[in-house]
Write a protein that binds this DNA or RNA. Structure first.
Length: 757
DNA sequence: TAAGGATATTTTTTT
DNA sequence: AATATCCTTA
């Protein structure tokens, strides 16, 4: 597939075509869900390059997630071939990191700076609080960090906070200053800094700004409704008059207000940049009319929005589905049952998704999927790199690149245990504060530290030594070699092997997988001659910014994710779970807790969720659910009653009553023949479940595990199976039993999937 | 100093 | 329910 301008009219509708061919004046594309905005952006870039002779490296395309960037890059490669790879496509944050890496020395940022993620920030803030002499109980590091982060998103420094009317502004300002100083000492930046310090760079070094101004002749920004104030400021610096700037967005899909996103940026775009051409894309190519009507019914209740209504030629489609369960467990099981029915009908598992409001809801769902033997995949941003053992190894590697990173040093100084406990660490940290040097440096000069015994001095020196040796290995080789060296030299490998428990071996397995990921990265990335950064430093940056490298998923699977993670994706079948007041909309958006604006954001989130579905949308709820380990009874979500009953197939009714939902639910279950036995489970489902790699994080308590693994079962005993219900055992054979379920017939199933009655 | 148990605290969403 | 933190004991 290559690009040819002449074919565009046959590929695009009138508005899309206009957006693609539009000239240099600022352009704002208001693109409803599923209206083909990625298509517009990619074709516009292709047209700039092929028809208008713009060198690809003069184009910057900014996306909101790394996933979106990846997808766009692929599409461009398809349209433009190799040249497509020369377009700069990345998130704002990744672009910031890249520019700071090259130019940051102008504002005192070392070339090898590390990017701190949330947990790094937290440990740093804890240390800051301690050093500042605040009582631990009085100030929560998390709260302070949230305040600082909010300030950074608005482009505010400590001084700006001091003048705020908030009574504790001075306190936050004080901690903000100390926190920044600590980051600077560690040679680190946090997420907010990637933007804010870029701004600082452009302000202090006009020549640098000028270079990038000239370089980025065309800038395209996707998901513009979710940009924050600093991002807008950066754009205004790069494109003062807006010429060559194209923003694409949808105010109805703004769901990151809590992170500093400001819809006003989108609404005010035409005023900020004079001569803006506005193009609306309202034809939807993704969903059925029923799904669009449902989404519209929910979003229309928001007062402040640019009125637009999506339409489609796809036809009405089938009515919405509905599940009313008694408990969250039952909800999960019923969702899985319906999915199994769909799979039997031949729907591709990768075309099915289950959404939820909070990550915590995934646990029960995962269990149900595992028990039901349906292949699934949790789409989580960065779970792998958040595992404790992986973070440990990363800490060693970051120390190798940057020995000043005290957070990392403190993390691994006694990992594996090498006799440097809390007391010794405290003394070392005190000395580091006194002398104004890093923890590793203090360790090197341990003899000078007051109060250390000879043995402790020796251990501390050995640690400094270790860091040096890993650094040596890292300087020479690729990221993979460095990771391997860290794993072995640190003693982590030996310690896990020594421990020898299943858990330890699993952690070690994760670390080996990490080494593998590093090697794979080495193979795929040739060093950028511009950057003069070691492969290891580049790899570390990539894992700080980017999530799980787990996109090399094997085989088709059902996707589980939060509503936020679903943005930009589409599936034939979508299950939206937890449709209950105070789950969705979330408690914190309701009544006492939330401002009215947060309820509006929940509504937009619902709109986003609905519009992911192409053909079938099922809404589910549980009448009772454990929250914080406490049983709660929640009313059905207000979003359910916003949906006109006719969309559920109830023709002659004005309003939806709770009882109606249950009725629809029952009718549907019957329609799907959920009890049908067609051998599907045996061939596909159950075996698969047995293969599935266990989730490392979940380790059932030993007594329960035992019971699960080997219940004492004999012929004649009853047992319960998650999907088939209670049946009578007829024969036991190794780890399988033959068991007869009423209405299902005789089945051979793994004992593991049975529960005693 | 390390390990294990009791107790407090937490969860909205993520670059 | 699951974790982080504190506290006791060996």
């Amino acid at each position: 597939m290559t690009f040819d301008r002449a074919t565009l009219p046959s590929l695009l509708n009138r508005e899309q075509l206009e957006a693609v061919l539009h000239g240099e004046d600022p352009l704002l594309v208001l693109a409803g869900a599923g209206s083909g905005k990625t298509r517009v952006i990619t074709y516009r870039i292709a047209d700039l390059v092929r028809s208008r002779g713009v060198p690809p490296w003069k184009i910057l395309a900014v996306t909101f997630t790394n996933k979106a960037a990846e997808e766009m890059r692929e599409r461009l490669l398809g349209l433009l071939g190799e040249e497509g790879g020369e377009v700069w496509i990345s998130t704002f944050h990744a672009a910031g990191a890249r520019i700071l890496r090259r130019e940051g020395e102008a504002i005192g940022l070392p070339r090898s700076f590390v990017v701190y993620d949330e947990s790094d920030q937290l440990s740093l803030m804890k240390r800051v609080l301690e050093a500042a002499g605040y009582e631990k109980r009085q100030i929560s590091p998390g709260v302070v960090l949230r305040r600082i982060d909010a300030a950074k998103n608005h482009g505010l420094g400590p001084d700006d906070l001091e003048s705020e009317d908030e009574a504790d502004g001075w306190l936050v300002a004080d901690l903000y200053r100390r926190y920044q100083a600590a980051l600077r000492e560690a040679g680190a930046v946090d997420f907010g800094d990637l933007l804010l310090r870029l701004f600082e760079l452009f302000e202090t070094a006009p020549d640098v700004l000028e270079r990038y101004r000239r370089r980025f002749e065309y800038v395209l920004v996707d998901e513009f409704q979710d940009t924050n104030d600093v991002q807008l400021r950066l754009l205004r610096m790069l494109k003062e008059d807006g010429r060559g700037l194209c923003a694409v967005g949808d105010d109805d899909q703004s769901i990151y207000r809590w992170r500093g996103a400001n819809v006003e940026n989108l609404l005010a775009f035409p005023e900020i940049f004079p001569n803006t051409r506005i193009i609306k894309l309202e034809q939807n190519y993704r969903s059925t009319q029923i799904i669009l009507d449902a989404a519209h019914a929910v979003i229309a209740k928001n007062p402040h929005r640019m009125e637009k209504k999506l339409w489609t030629r796809n036809g009405p489609g089938e009515p919405l589905g509905c599940i009313v369960a008694r408990t969250e467990r039952e909800e999960a099981e019923r969702v899985v049952d319906r999915i199994r029915a769909s799979l039997r009908r031949g729907v591709d598992p990768s075309e099915i998704a289950v959404f939820y409001r909070t990550n915590a809801q995934s646990r029960v769902l995962e269990e149900a999927f595992r028990l039901g033997g349906v292949p699934y995949q949790v789409v989580r941003g960065r779970s792998f790199y958040e595992r404790a053992e992986v973070k440990d190894l990363v800490a060693y590697l970051r120390l190798a690149v940057h020995p000043h990173s005290d957070v990392d040093a403190a993390r691994v100084i006694n990992k594996p245990a090498r006799g440097i406990g809390a007391t010794t660490l405290g003394r070392l940290q005190a000395a580091a504060a006194d002398w104004g040097v890093s923890l590793v440096e203090v360790c090197r000069q341990a003899a000078q530290v007051p109060g250390l015994s000879a043995a402790q001095q020796q251990r501390a020196r050995a640690f400094a030594d270790l860091v040096g040796r890993i650094a040596l290995a890292a300087a020479e080789g690729a990221a993979g070699d460095a990771a391997e060296a860290a794993l072995v030299l640190s003693g982590l490998e030996a310690a896990y092997l020594d421990e020898g428990t299943d858990e330890a071996l699993e952690r070690l397995e994760n670390l080996r997988e990490f080494v593998g990921a590093a090697r794979e990265w080495d193979a795929r990335h040739q060093p950028d001659p511009d950057d003069d950064v070691t492969p290891l430093a580049a790899f570390l940056e990539q894992i700080a910014l980017l999530g799980d490298a787990d996109d090399r998923v094997s085989g088709p699977k059902v996707s589980l994710m939060t509503l936020h993670a679903s943005k930009g994706l589409e599936f034939e079948e979508v299950y939206l779970t937890g449709m209950e007041e105070s789950v969705f909309p979330h408690v914190r958006a309701l009544g006492l807790f939330g401002a009215p604006e947060s309820l509006e954001e929940e509504r937009r989130l619902c709109y986003v969720g609905f519009t992911r579905a192409k053909k079938r949308l099922v809404l589910s709820l549980a009448q009772s659910r454990y929250i914080f380990g406490e049983l709660r009874f929640n009313a059905p979500s207000r979003f359910l009653s916003d949906v006109p009953p006719r969309l559920f197939g109830l023709e002659d009714q004005e309003r939806l009553r709770p009882a109606d939902l249950e009725e629809i639910d029952e009718v549907e279950d019957a329609a799907f023949d959920l009890d049908e036995d067609d051998g599907f489970e045996d061939d596909y489902v159950i075996d698969y479940a047995w293969d599935q790699r266990p989730e490392p994080r979940k380790r059932p308590k030993p007594p329960r595990k035992k019971e699960r693994e080997a219940p004492a079962l004999r012929a004649g005993m009853p047992a319960r199976h998650a999907s088939f219900g209670v049946g009578m055992i007829e024969a036991v054979d190794g780890d399988k039993v033959s068991i007869r379920f009423p209405g299902v017939g005789l089945k051979r199933v793994m004992i593991r999937f049975l529960e005693p009655v």
